[in-house]
């Protein structure tokens, strides 16, 4: 395992500002710089996976193979609205309240 420190590294260049916006993280320039450097170090090591030939290999999303886990179409009890809304940072009557939405998806 020591070779994690010795192996040939692949340089990675991250547009950290774009990534932070995608992830909805409001970070300062200083923070962005720091995170970019740290992420690049980790990604350069992580990029080692690219050295392993994987032609014809199917990726694994689930460690335990299973298919068709279905639920019957039956209505079950819902949560108590007050209990749910009690956790809301801001509410208006029976609704969750959020600041104005600028652009629509």
């Amino acid at each position: 395992m020591a070779y994690y420190y010795h192996c040939r590294l692949m340089p990675v260049d991250i547009d950290i500002g774009k990534v932070a916006r995608l992830a909805r993280l409001a970070l300062s320039e200083d923070e962005l710089n720091r995170y970019r450097q740290q992420c690049e170090v980790v990604l350069e090591h992580a990029a080692r996976v690219q050295a392993l030939p994987t032609d014809g290999v199917t990726g694994t999303s689930h460690p335990l193979p299973r298919t068709n886990a279905f639920r019957d179409d039956i209505v079950t009890e819902c949560l108590d609205r007050e209990e749910v809304l009690a956790q809301a940072p801001e509410r208006d009557g029976d609704y969750f309240l959020v600041p104005r939405i600028l652009d629509e998806q």
Binding site: R24, L25, A26, Q87, A88, F96, V98, P99, R100, L102
Partner: peptide, 20 residues
Amino acid sequence: VRYGLRRRGETVEEMMSTTR
């Protein structure tokens, strides 16, 4: 939006980004 911390924001995007 639904639980936990919320920081102020002019728009929902700003609120989410500062909260997170």
